[in-house]
Amino acid sequence: MVSNGNRISTRALPGVLLAALLAVPAMSASAEGTAEISRGQQYYEKICAKCHEAGIGPVLLGRGLPEVIFTTIPRSGLRAMPAFRVSDIDDATLQSLAKYLANSKPKP
């Protein structure tokens, strides 16, 4: 049996994006958030924040990181970060979460 070209690796993520994620938070560059709470934001607050706002995973809010980071890394997981399956978070919610995070402001 031979695996096809569709191989699995967190290394598939562009190095520059990875570097951006792991870097120190940017201070500005966030767009205005929407007033209503999106599904993605709800998911972030309920699940992601339990690590990413607890000093365990890197801070994600207000980093000005591109949406693609938030749609790819959750699916592959990264080091100790678990992978999130489509049964955990569907594509639409993940997209909404990505949009929320990409446009978020840093926490005061």
């Binding site: 569709n6 699995i8 592959s76 992978a83 399956r85 489509v86």
Partner: peptide, 15 residues
Amino acid sequence: VLTSGEHLQPYTKVM
């Protein structure tokens, strides 16, 4: 029913 590498990826993450 998922078979693509992209969809299977989260199921392959082991520690």
